[in-house]
Design a protein around this nucleic acid. Structure first.
Length: 572
RNA sequence: GACUAAGUAGCUCAGUAGGUAGAGCACAUCCCUUUUAAGGAUGGGGUCCUGGGUUCGAAUCCCAGCUUGGUCACCA
């Protein structure tokens, strides 16, 4: 691998440190007895505090002025300034630890531990006066340098490709990124706490499933060698959680990583997280109240208020949320009442509002299309949409009073679905029929239709109590709660195309061809990194370029002859 | 998958009637004992994403590809 000048210098520094007997990667524990945030919080009130502290972190900035220097130290919660004074670090005659090790061998990115006391500089900055320091880890790669003044950021590290591929760098230099992930975890903790207080049992169900079910999506497929069988990564865990309700639990939930082998976008990652919850003897009306209450609590726990800024909108999660049936929502946004329409009328209606349909779409699908095109994006404040067409919901119970509909709701917020819930279908005969009609869709080429799960049907035949089920998209909710415009911002390691690795031949391989070592870097300078690339060139071209670069680099080495070059290329 | 924008130094970015590649930060060597996106002096650092083409000459124009972003499609 080609190292940049700065990387080479840091590797040399490493060698120099070892020569001085300084271990750049020490093994022993470094005692840390305070965090930067503690000092910033308590020192201003009581100046007698923190007079003998030990703290560790990463060097994020250096300002060196002769015999004194200031360092920006960053730990897991923030930053603090360090003050180094030569005669404090090196009280005796030997000033190596300051002049050489500190000033020359420490870089931005290195991790150090320091002991000292806190004071306030003339500029009013809370600062640690360092009495002694210890190198804890030498960093070999230069970090992007982000600077700030008066809330203005200079040279921000923003390239999305690098931020996502090298999330560790993103986390080091962009503190707001760390905040997003802390909020995400607090969000999950808040929900878990809510569910635990109510006595629901957190469970784990298989990720590797012999049949994929519980949603309509294409799966990832894999293979188990010993059993010699196909397994799928789950697209949902719904059918397993319902089996547990059959087994007698009153309420079960799981934060579940699910996998869908489909397109990627600002809102879709191949693996994503949902929490699914099933509660026996409840229905979807009851579940709506739970969702309102839980999400309101989440907003309060994260922000201390129910109002959350998302893009240009302020979204208020305070209960109660607006509720629309799907028909009401469509009428509200289009002025058209479709509740009594047959398929022909629906088709004409869709056409009149410029929605493209294809022939395979049935009544339910057309209604869903109209809703998706005309309503969803306009629902900014949290809103429940209820009573969906039965065709779209093969696992939901038929509506108690409305023909052709199911007892299902989604919560829409900022124009996107954040949860999906229904009164679960527990009639095994009806469930089998629904699966059968899904199979029909599959035969017609719908790759996302559901497959028949005989074991699940067997469980339903033993009897599942009336149950309310819920799925909340954790990533989507995290996007809303952290005001993040894309799902990649709320996933530590979003899926990316593989990084292409430059293939580079080793120096020795060039030398083996008879090329003197001094010329190898020159060849690399010409853009030739592999033997293959070299052998594609013509000897004359190489010879000419060598001459040019020899002059440019002011090399004393005598030029090889054109025959030598031919020999290197094996072109004799 | 379609359309579109971008890809230049470690980082952020300039750079057209095609004509020797620039700045700030970072880095190196100095100066400076409480500074703060420190300052000053000097210096090093670039297959201008890759491959073709046009041209005497391409970072720049054309074509193809790669990667990333955006929009749409797909994702009930």
């Amino acid at each position: 691998m080609q190292l940049s000048e700065q990387e080479l210098i840091r590797r040399e520094t490493l060698t120099e440190l070892k020569k001085l007997g300084i271990e750049p990667y020490p093994a022993e524990e470094y005692e840390v007895n305070v965090k930067t945030s503690d000092i910033h919080q308590h020192f201003p009130e009581d100046k007698t505090l923190y007079q003998d502290i030990s703290i560790a972190g990463r060097i994020m900035g250096r300002r060196i002025m002769g015999a004194a220097a200031f360092i920006e130290l960053q730990d897991s919660v923030g930053r603090i300034q360090l003050y180094f004074k030569r005669d404090d670090i090196c009280p005796g005659e030997d000033k190596t630890m300051y002049n050489t090790v500190f000033k020359r061998f420490l870089d931005i990115g290195d991790i150090i531990g320091v002991k000292g006391f806190v004071f306030i500089t003339q500029m009013g900055e809370i600062t640690i006066h360092v009495r002694e320091y210890r190198l804890l880890c030498k960093s070999l790669r230069p970090l992007p340098i982000v600077k700030e003044k008066d809330d203005k950021t200079y040279d921000a590290f923003t390239d999305p490709e690098m931020r996502y591929r090298q999330r560790y760098v993103d986390l080091i230099v962009n503190p707001q990124v760390r905040d997003i992930f802390i909020k995400r975890t607090r969000m999950v903790n808040s929900m878990r706490e809510y569910l635990n207080v109510r006595g629901y049992l957190e469970v784990e169900t298989p990720i590797l499933q012999p049949l994929y079910g519980g949603a309509a999506a294409r799966p990832f497929k894999t293979h188990h060698n010993t059993l010699d069988m196909t397994l799928y990564l789950r697209i949902a865990n719904e059918l397993y959680l319902k089996r547990l309700i059959v087994g007698g639990f009153d309420g079960v939930y799981e934060f579940s990583k699910d996998f869908r082998n489909e397109g990627m976008s600002r809102f879709h990652n191949p693996e994503f997280t949902q929490v699914e919850l099933y509660v026996a003897y409840k229905d979807y009306e009851w579940m709506m109240n739970l969702v309102e209450e839980m999400v309101e609590k989440v907003a309060m726990d994260i922000h201390g208020t129910t109002k959350v800024q998302v893009g240009d909108n302020i979204i208020d999660f305070q209960r109660p949320w607006k509720r629309f049936t799907m028909f009401e929502a469509i009428e509200h946004f289009t002025g058209i009442d479709i509740s009594e329409m047959d398929e022909v009328a629906l088709r004409n209606t869709a056409k009149s509002v410029h929605i493209e349909l294809d022939e395979t779409m049935g009544k339910g699908k057309i209604i869903d299309e109209i809703f998706g095109a005309k309503c969803e994006a306009l629902l900014i404040q949290p809103t429940f949409i209820t009573d969906y067409p039965v065709e779209m919901s093969p696992l939901a119970k038929k509506h108690r009073s409305k023909e052709g509909l199911v007892e299902r709701f989604e919560a829409i917020c900022n124009g996107k679905e954040i949860c999906n819930s229904f009164s679960e279908l527990n009639d095994p005969i009806d469930q089998r029929e629904r699966f059968m009609s899904q199979l029909e869709l599959g035969k017609r080429g719908d790759e996302e239709s559901m497959v028949l799960d005989e074991d699940f049907l067997r469980a339903l035949e033993y009897g599942m109590p009336p149950t309310a089920g819920l799925g909340i998209g954790i990533d989507r909710l995290a996007m809303v709660m952290t005001n993040s415009p894309s799902i990649q911002e709320v996933l530590f390691f979003p899926q990316m195309r593989p990084e292409k690795k430059a293939i580079i031949s080793k120096d020795e391989e060039f030398v083996e061809l008879g090329i003197p070592v001094v010329w190898v870097p020159i060849l690399r300078q010409m853009g030739i990194n592999t033997i293959e690339e070299l052998q594609k060139k013509s000897a004359g071209q190489i010879f000419n370029q060598l001459g040019g670069l020899r002059k440019k680099n002011k090399l004393d080495t005598p030029m090889p002859s054109q025959d030598d070059v031919k020999h290197w290329l094996g072109q004799e």
